[in-house]
Design a protein around this nucleic acid. Structure first.
Length: 426
RNA sequence: GCGACCGUAGCUCAGUCGGUUAGAGCGCCUGACUGUGGCUCAGGAGGUCGUGGGUUCAAGUCCCAUCGGUCGCCCCA
C-alpha cells in the first residue's frame, strides 16, 4: 500500500497506540479543574477574524501573519482559532455569564491553529488545555490559578526540578506606558548593539526586546530598566500581595523580569511554566491577567486572567521524565470459537457479555482456533472463554485464565455472576 | 521567510570503489497429529529504494530539481 494522501504539514494523527495517553492528560486536566470549581466551556473552532484582531492585537505575530483565515459564502471573514482566550471571553459576553454569577471559572480543551513553520513542539494544529477566571481583580485569583497549575503538573508526575514557574508583572494602562517608554529609550541608546529584529521591535513593541534570545541582546538588556519603580500604586500592591499569597501557599516561582508576553491583552501578572527537555520550545504553558480584554471585546470592564497549557508539550515532558502513563486499554475477555459451528454462538455470547458491561473481544475474520488463541493472548484479556462442540452441547463455557493457565468449566447461566466476582465492571 | 540535516519493507536500519534476482532484526500471516496462547522451529506475504529529470554500458549509490520529514533562527502552546 503506497499512501497517496498525507496529513497536512504541521498536523498529526493521534493513533490508537498513543490516544489513551492523550485521554489521560485530558482527564487529569478535567479532574483538577473541576476540583477547583471550574466548568467546561466549548467554543467553535472558528470565529470572526475581527474577534482575534481586537482581542489578541493586530501587532502580534499570531494575528499579523499566522492565522488561517477564510471566507464563507456570505463573504464573512473567518479564522480558525489561533488561541483559546478570546473565544471564551466572546462567549462570556454573548451569553451574559456575568449575570449568572459575578465570578466565572471556565476551562476548556481545544485544538488551535497557527500557520507557521513547524519544529519540535510547534505545530500548525496543536492542542491547548486552558482555564480562565473572569470577574475577580483580587490577587487571590492569580494565586489560586498558579497554585492549580503547579498542582496539575505535579499530579501528572513531573518532578519538581523539571519545571519552573516564571512570574512577572507588566503593569497596567496607567503605568506601563512610562515603563515602555523607558525601555524604548534604553533600546535607542543601545540601538547599534541590538539585533535586527529588536531594532524593528523597538518601534512597535519595545518591551519584546527584553525576551529576545540573541545572546548579545540579552547581555545588553540585562541592564535595561526594570518595571518595579514604574508600577503605579494599585499594580505594585497587587503584585506584592500576590507574592505574599504565593509564599503562604508554598508555591515556588522565579521572578523573571524578561517575561513579556506576546499577546497584547495582558496586564499586571504574567507567567510561564518552563520545562526541561523541550528544546527551543520550552514553554509548557503561558498566561496572565487581562483586565482590559472583556471591555476591549465590547463587554463591561471586568477583571480576568487565564492560562493555556500545551498538550503536546506536556506529553513530551511526561515521556521525557518517564512519568507513569497509563497502559493501553485491553479487553476483559476474549472468546475463542472452536469450529465453525461455534462462531455464531461465540458472537452471541460476546454481545450478551458486552451488554452486561464486560469489554469483550473475539475474532471476526474466520481464523483458526490456534490463531484465535494467539489473538486472545495478544489482546491481554484476563480470561479466554472457549466455546466448542462440547460446551455448546452442555450449555457451558470453558474459562481460561490467560496468566495462570488455569481453566474451568462454567455453566453459561452462571457465567455473568462468575465473572462479576472476579472482574471489575467496565 | 531563512538555515542545517535526512528520505531503502508496517517499524528500526544495513546496502562496499556505481555492477547480477535489494537484505537483516522486530512486527504481521501460515504451519509443527484432528479443540488450547506466550518459548522454539519451519515457511510465507510485504519494497516501482519519496517523486521527476540528468550523467553512465550500468544508478538505492553520482548530479539537479521537486515534494515530504526532522531540527534550529524568529515567535509561541
Amino acid at each position: 500500500m503506497r499512501p497517496k494522501y498525507f496529513a497536512p504539514k504541521g498536523t498529526e494523527d493521534i493513533l490508537p497506540s498513543v490516544s489513551h495517553e492523550w485521554r489521560f492528560v485530558e482527564s487529569q486536566w478535567r479532574a483538577v479543574c473541576e476540583r477547583y470549581g471550574y466548568r467546561e466551556i466549548r467554543t467553535p473552532i472558528y470565529e470572526e477574524t475581527e474577534l482575534f484582531r481586537r482581542g489578541v492585537g493586530t501587532e502580534t505575530d499570531i494575528v499579523s501573519k499566522e492565522m488561517f483565515t477564510f471566507r464563507d459564502r456570505g463573504e464573512r471573514d473567518l479564522a480558525l482559532k489561533p488561541e483559546g482566550t478570546a473565544p471564551v471571553v466572546r462567549a462570556y459576553i454573548e451569553h451574559g455569564l456575568y449575570a449568572q454569577s459575578p465570578l466565572q471559572r471556565l476551562y476548556y480543551i481545544t485544538p488551535f491553529f497557527r500557520d507557521e513553520d513547524v519544529q519540535k513542539g510547534r505545530y500548525r494544529q496543536a492542542h491547548q488545555m486552558g482555564a480562565e477566571i473572569i470577574g475577580s481583580a483580587e490577587p487571590y485569583a492569580d494565586a489560586e490559578l498558579l497554585s492549580m497549575l503547579v498542582y496539575f503538573f505535579r499530579t501528572l508526575g513531573i518532578p519538581e526540578d523539571w519545571f519552573e514557574l516564571h512570574l512577572n508583572t507588566m503593569g497596567c494602562a496607567e503605568c506601563r506606558p512610562a515603563y515602555r517608554e523607558a525601555v524604548q529609550q534604553f533600546g535607542r541608546d543601545h540601538f547599534d548593539q541590538l539585533c535586527e529584529t529588536c531594532q524593528h521591535r523597538l518601534e512597535h513593541n519595545p518591551l519584546r526586546i527584553l525576551d529576545c534570545k540573541v545572546p548579545t541582546c540579552r547581555a545588553i538588556t540585562e541592564n535595561a530598566p526594570r518595571i518595579d519603580p514604574f508600577l503605579c500604586e494599585p499594580c505594585r500592591t497587587h503584585f506584592e500581595r500576590l507574592q505574599a499569597i504565593l509564599k503562604a501557599l508554598e508555591v515556588a516561582y522565579v521572578r523573571d523580569y524578561r517575561l513579556v508576553r506576546g499577546l497584547d491583552y495582558y496586564t499586571r501578572t504574567t507567567f510561564e511554566v518552563l520545562a526541561k527537555g523541550l528544546g527551543a520550545q520550552n514553554a509548557l504553558c503561558g498566561g496572565g491577567r487581562y483586565d482590559g480584554l472583556v471591555e476591549q471585546l465590547g463587554g463591561n470592564p471586568t477583571p480576568a486572567l487565564g492560562v493555556g497549557i500545551g498538550l503536546e508539550r506536556t506529553l513530551m515532558v511526561l515521556r521525557e521524565v518517564g512519568a507513569p502513563l497509563p497502559e493501553a486499554p485491553h479487553p476483559d475477555l476474549f472468546i475463542v470459537a472452536f469450529g465453525d459451528s461455534a462462531r455464531l454462538p461465540a458472537l452471541q455470547l460476546a454481545e450478551s457479555l458486552r451488554h452486561a458491561g464486560f469489554a469483550t473481544d473475539l475474532d471476526i475474520t474466520g481464523r483458526s482456533p490456534k490463531a484465535q488463541m494467539r489473538l486472545a493472548n495478544d489482546s491481554r484479556a484476563t480470561y479466554a472463554l472457549l466455546l466448542g462442540e462440547d460446551e455448546l452441547a452442555n450449555q457451558t463455557v470453558s474459562v481460561r485464565n490467560l496468566q495462570t493457565r488455569e481453566q474451568e468449566t462454567v455453566a453459561q447461566s452462571e457465567l455473568t455472576e462468575w465473572l462479576n466476582t472476579r472482574l471489575p465492571r467496565s
